[in-house]
Design a protein around this nucleic acid. Structure first.
Lengths: 205, 205
DNA sequence: CACACAACTGAACACTGTTCAATTAAAAAT
DNA sequence: ATTTTTAATTGAACAGTGTTCAGTTGTGTG
């Protein structure tokens, strides 16, 4: 078959990303198959290589969709929160976990896909990934009550790593949190301790 | 070829685990191949299935070796530390990172291999995994200066998750810590803040 | 020495990623 | 309206994977 008019280039791109994202959600990274994703879109393997240039780029595109959904999820949760600083941070951490829980396979795939340092990520996809850091940055700055300093940026990254660690070990079912009933609560406790230490306020016990 | 007397059952087990571990260290989880591991041991694929019963069990055995090496590494670092409580905790966190850095592929493979909840882990391998938690438990209890309570155990798991998160994002080269020069230092800072909050002492800024 | 057993093999199967010559629909030129 | 050109799409080919299992062959026993 030759050139088809079923979809415009952009629509085809979106279609393939959509099918890939769905497949990732049901099967997980280990059992993901580009062939199967293409099949579901009504195309054949080669098309994925045509459109994205390679499997890595395709996976990056699929995972970037997850990033976008994740950011939107967090913003919604924050918008639905009417409260002071502490409540907003709590809502953010809880929403972080809730999204990962509701999209286990897709969420884990983000970290399962190891990107070779030589592979360049499309600008738009890079932005989708940085949007998440941006949200945390904004909320932490808001909580601290002062402008964004280099020290705050370092802290933000560290807080993300802290929450990530709890969430990752929780979803992977690792040894650490097997008997922990509220990993999000533990992550939140660590975040509040860190924030308190950086503001001079006392940490809530 | 039939029964050979090259190796006793135990020796063969160890040989296969050793070759698998080496291969994992050079190639990483994604490019690991049971065929290749068997080839290097001088056996064929089927033998791995004979000895371990399946690929999952083999990978668990391989990763458990990494766990054992990791524990030994941490104990050595602690033994070489002559200092007070803070220094021991610092040594522990630094050694955690140093091991992961020196054994990137093998360390990441531990978390890359998702174990189906139905798969049962051999008792000895389970023990190897829990040994690490045990070390942290012991050191945290020592730092806090009081006996092991349920609350302490929860904190220990949370601290492990905190350090894990920093280490994982660092090694995966993720967005969060790309420009962070000392992720271990950040993890340590978070750990000390948490420990301080749980002891009543002031957190060091 | 023959037998029986268990260890070990490797071909078979169904899948994967990746490449690329061939095909063919649509657009452009006649 | 017909031909030519262009580019999108295919799918067979290749090398690799995990997994199974009938068959082969060393080794210990009767």
């Amino acid at each position: 078959m030759g050139r088809r008019s079923d979809h415009t280039p952009d629509a085809l791109r979106e279609l393939l990303i959509g099918c890939g994202h769905d497949l990732m959600a049901e099967r997980g990274f280990a059992k993901f198959s580009a062939r199967e994703a293409a099949r579901r879109a009504g195309y054949s393997v080669g098309t994925i290589y045509n459109v994205f240039g390679g499997l890595d780029a395709y996976l990056i595109a699929v995972n970037s969709r997850t990033f976008r959904e994740w950011s939107a999820w967090l913003e919604e949760a924050l918008a639905a929160t009417s409260g002071d600083g502490d409540a907003r941070v709590a809502a953010l951490v809880r929403a972080y976990f809730a999204f990962a829980d509701a999209n286990r396979n897709a969420w884990m795939a983000i970290y399962d896909h190891r990107i070779d340092r030589t592979t360049t990520i499309a600008k738009q996809d890079e932005a989708a990934r940085e949007a998440l850091t941006g949200i945390v940055d904004r909320e932490v700055t808001r909580w601290l009550g002062h402008a964004d300093e280099p020290a705050t940026r370092r802290l933000v990254r560290s807080l993300i790593a802290t929450v990530h660690g709890h969430c990752a070990l929780w979803l992977s079912g690792s040894y650490a949190l097997m008997r922990e009933e509220d990993p999000a609560g533990q992550a939140l406790a660590r975040v509040m301790e860190a924030l308190s230490a950086h503001s001079g306020r006392a940490a809530p016990s």
